[in-house]
Write a protein that binds this DNA or RNA. Structure first.
Lengths: 243, 243
DNA sequence: AGGACAGACTAACGCAGATCAGTGAAAGCG
DNA sequence: CGCTTTCACTGATCTGCGTTAGTCTGTCCT
């Protein structure tokens, strides 16, 4: 296998073996690279005619604000993920996107993407598969918020992040570097920051995992998986309908 | 405008004017019509190699079960919606699908759909738009469960259902026929059935709306919209990137 | 007709998690 | 160099919602 140039190539490569040509096409999508600072929204709910991006490095969150001032983070994006792909189909974005760290991202215009799909159809299938996987994760997130208590929910979420990061080589079974604050985690989990803190302490004191100093460390992976009822099969080993 | 044959045609037609040819292609997708009784799952989480369907009549819910025995309903599907479209891309379904009423649905195989897209590309855009809209609704649902209290959440959900039903001619601003039990509503909203009952009583006593005898009736639409912070713009008036 | 069952509805009680109100440490900055 | 801001962390109190345990209807059986 040739060297994997980008996180996206690495992610898709974990699912279909990519030819040199396909890798080259993927690389070309990364031509218009841009850098954004942390904390400054790159896309706003209601905004029209924005571009889509492929995230090359750094972390991002997509969220919605409510009139009461609270917010719900729908998902975090990590290297190799698309930003605002769905919103491009609508004229206006249905959520906002904020970089959590300084990020590097490549602007992708719809025509370029369609072009790439035409020349390398297997890429289209792979990208569609990735999009479906993202959607499955949003659904799993919904289920967690609706029906899991704070401990299960937190554990599940951090395990899932780990699984995603592993795909792009940014995590091991031991843990991963994680730039999230407890506030961000709270907004993602539908909890208060105070309660997130308590839950993290519980998990730590139970010897299951730690979330400290910008790093997530799994001490008892199996125990965590059991507590969270984590089933990675919906992220794993599942290929699309490739014919 | 020609007569609209199916709910799907009606829904897509609300967004792009469909030619006679496109209508014919849509009709053809409905050739393999099947009937399913209420309460019997037509698709199971973990099941492999199932087909996708277009719902022609009746109501359906897609849900996930948790080990504790509770379940979370991710979404209800109404006539004109696709069933299991995303799960076809994965080898195995990531959720279960259960008819709430007796339903009629047309089996659609992936090749047929791709064929239809090739002969009428505008149809592909329209279907993609519909899929994006569905995803946007799941996101909105997630936000509701995470950050809205029971009253807002319930009101928002029933308003959204109304907006969707209006698109296929099954609702007016006054209300709509609704076969959901309070238990189903509870599983969708991440609440207990008991509390759903309390909330519905509150809404009724506040003169906002009723949910009784299989019908939802809006008495104070504006008041409800305000309470729920309901913004239908993400369902309305928004076209896809049509070139 | 009587029994079984599903669904709407209610009251009493308990708890998970929100809210409020702080402390203390580290990092950015004029 | 203090000053401000951000973040982790904690205890006390409050509350929205779950849980339990019912009653009452209507409808479908046989």
């Amino acid at each position: 296998m040739t060297a994997l140039h980008t996180p996206l190539a690495r992610k898709l490569g974990a699912f279909v073996a990519l030819s040199a040509k396909e890798l080259a096409v993927l690389d070309q999508l990364h031509s218009r690279r841009r850098v954004f600072p942390a904390g400054l929204d790159i896309m706003h709910e209601g905004q029209t005619n924005h571009a889509a991006y492929i995230l090359a490095s750094g972390w991002v969150c997509s969220y919605k604000l409510l009139p009461g001032g609270s917010r719900q983070i729908v998902d975090f994006q990590i290297p190799g993920d698309f930003l605002g792909l769905r919103s491009v189909l609508f004229r206006t974005a249905d959520h906002s996107i904020e970089p959590i760290t300084r990020i590097e991202a490549s602007e992708v215009l719809a025509p370029e993407l369609l072009d790439a799909f035409n020349t390398t159809p297997r890429l289209a299938a792979a990208v569609l598969w990735a999009a479906s996987r993202d959607e499955a994760m949003v659904v799993e997130h919904l289920v967690g918020i609706g029906r899991r208590d704070a401990r299960e929910r937190t554990a599940h979420f951090l395990l899932e992040l780990g699984a995603r990061l592993k795909l792009v080589g940014l995590a091991t079974t031991e843990g991963y570097a994680c730039p999230l604050s407890q506030y961000l985690l709270a907004d993602a989990l539908g909890l208060s920051a105070v309660h997130v803190n308590r839950v993290l302490r519980e998990l730590r004191e139970a010897g299951l995992m730690t979330f400290q100093h910008g790093a997530v460390t799994f001490q008892d992976f199996k125990g965590l998986v059991k507590l969270a009822d984590f089933d990675l099969h919906y992220l794993d080993h599942d290929g699309p309908l490739l014919r």
